[in-house]
Design a protein around this nucleic acid. Structure first.
Length: 447
RNA sequence: GGAGGGGUCGCAUAGUGGCCUAGUGCGCCAUCUUGGAAAGGUGGUAAGGGGGUAACUCCUUCGAGGGUUCAAAUCCCUCUCCCUCCGCCA
């Protein structure tokens, strides 16, 4: 959710930037309702002040009939205004929620995902002196993926992942956890990118896989609803999460964190669920697009001042991780249309997939500024800076602000294994193991 | 699933219709005393919203939502979370 004060100050800007993201919003109507709402609020406050004063007057002696009648009238007036306000408030809130986050200044304006900009390509597209196989051909030959039986048991877009691929996944998970806890690596990336943030390690988390409707809505990741799985329709108010971001980013809802605790960096591991509504016929072969996939997700809570640097660190980490696996990739800065409603900025990393002869999205990094935290009420208390306090009395007063949230893929395990299979295939149909992963696989060199 | 007990200002607690403008202790901040500290004294100590250049001021919030009442932390209803016991269970 956007700050109403910001919308009051820059209505045209909000209208224009929303349009750039493909959102038709009614800023005029919202501001009209905002005015009405504030008028009612003032009236209600006045009535309540009178009610409070009257109650204070009556509390000593037995109230007279006249006083009670007077009180009753106040009560009725209040009730009418309350109903009025509730109606205005409903419309106001729903309009306010529709307004997307403002794109950051460097986000290219675009009308479709075709307007995303390739920032750079890194690595040389893998070449082979034999006919290239797709990952599903490789997997079938080695019995690494069984989709037919999964379809029988659970339906299409499910799979049994087996044998060497499972070992590979566990190896990747350990590798990521080790890397994200390595302050030397973090410091190196921070220095290279000239970021002004500490090399604080990521803490691994196993978050809940289900989420309440209210929290999902506050994260602004529930829509479109038909891409999410609802659980226990009548009995429970729960959804299966579609990304660890959904339950990681919401964990400090309604809390005030200490500035000294920030940044908080987590790497969550979770099996994620998506209905993939509207993708019928897309990526039906292989395991690129599944209803269920395992994912390692980075999530960072920070101050507003460091939010963008944290975003850049996450992007740098994504590249670092893919580089360690020695996979060719390209970086895409997403345009205004494609970054998503709560995003101020979004960057995709696409890994080269020789079997499909194209780059495919394996990573995405989202910077939400305070858009999510405003509705979640995830705040932090600024510590008084004593040096300033001497000069400026107000600076010594602790101030509460909204945290900035960042989220980024460490690895979508299914997709990165597809990339490894296709890039590391050998002439005899084996799959070599990237060097950095071998220590986590009992020094196995291929599967 | 069954029975009972709870949710109050960072923490711990008091509070059964108007003396609650939520008391007390701890913690924290400031300050006094001190050579410096401890101890002690004094003052302060939440969030959100409205108005005001400001000093300030008004409103809301005692798990959440409804209700009763001139008046609700307090009474009633619904929900929710936590604790104890029983049952079931990886």
């Amino acid at each position: 959710m956007l700050d109403i004060q910001f919308i009051r100050d820059y209505p045209q800007l909000v209208q224009d930037k929303s349009a750039q993201k493909g959102y038709k919003v009614r800023v005029d109507e919202l501001l009209e309702l905002d005015g009405q709402r504030r008028t009612r609020l003032t009236q209600i406050d006045e009535l309540r002040a009178r009610r409070n004063a009257q109650a204070a007057e009556l509390k000593q002696a037995q109230p007279s009939d006249e006083q009670i009648a007077n009180g009753k009238q106040l009560k009725e007036e209040l009730a009418t205004l309350d109903v009025d306000l509730a109606m205005i408030d409903d419309k106001y809130t729903s309009l306010l929620k529709q307004i997307p986050n403002m794109p950051h200044d460097d986000v290219p304006v675009g009308a479709s995902e075709d307007d995303n900009v390739v920032i750079r390509q890194v690595g040389v597209k893998t070449e082979f002196d034999f006919p290239v196989k797709t990952h599903w051909e490789l997997a079938e030959a080695k019995d690494l993926i069984d989709k037919d039986r999964a379809t029988k048991v659970a339906g299409p877009r499910f799979a049994y992942i087996k044998g060497g691929l499972v070992e590979l996944q566990f190896a990747i998970m350990q590798f990521v956890q080790r890397t994200l806890a390595d302050e030397t690596v973090l410091q190196k990336l921070i220095d290279e990118n000239e970021l002004n943030i500490p090399a604080k390690p990521f803490v691994p988390v196993l978050p809940p896989a289900m989420i309440k409707t209210s929290i999902y809505e506050a994260m602004d990741r529930l829509e479109p609803r038909d891409d999410r799985y609802k659980v226990g329709e009548e009995v429970d108010d729960l959804w299966l999460q579609g990304s660890a971001e959904h339950t990681l980013g919401s964990m400090y809802a309604d809390e005030i964190l200490l500035e000294s605790a920030l940044p908080i960096r987590y790497v969550g591991y979770l099996t994620s669920f998506r209905r993939e509504a509207g993708t019928y016929g897309k990526d039906t072969e292989g395991i690129i697009r599944m209803h269920q996939f395992d994912k390692l997700e980075m999530e960072v809570f920070s101050t507003p001042e460091t939010g963008l640097d944290e975003h850049k660190l996450l992007c740098a980490l994504q590249e670092y991780l893919v580089q360690q696996l020695e996979l060719p990739y390209q970086i895409l800065q997403k345009c205004t249309f494609d970054i998503g409603k709560p995003n101020a900025r979004g960057v995709d990393l696409e890994t080269w997939m020789p079997g499909q002869n194209k780059y495919r999205e394996t990573h995405t990094a989202d910077y939400m500024t305070d858009y999510q935290s405003r509705r979640l009420k995830t705040r932090f208390r600024r510590q008084p800076h004593s040096a300033q306090a001497i000069v400026d009395v107000t600076a010594s007063k602790p101030v509460v602000g909204l945290v900035h949230t960042n989220d980024a893929t460490a690895f979508a395990l299914g997709r990165i294994m597809v990339a490894i299979m296709e890039n590391y295939q050998t002439a005899d149909g084996n799959i070599r193991i990237p060097t950095v992963l071998q220590p986590y696989m009992a020094d196995k060199t291929e599967i």
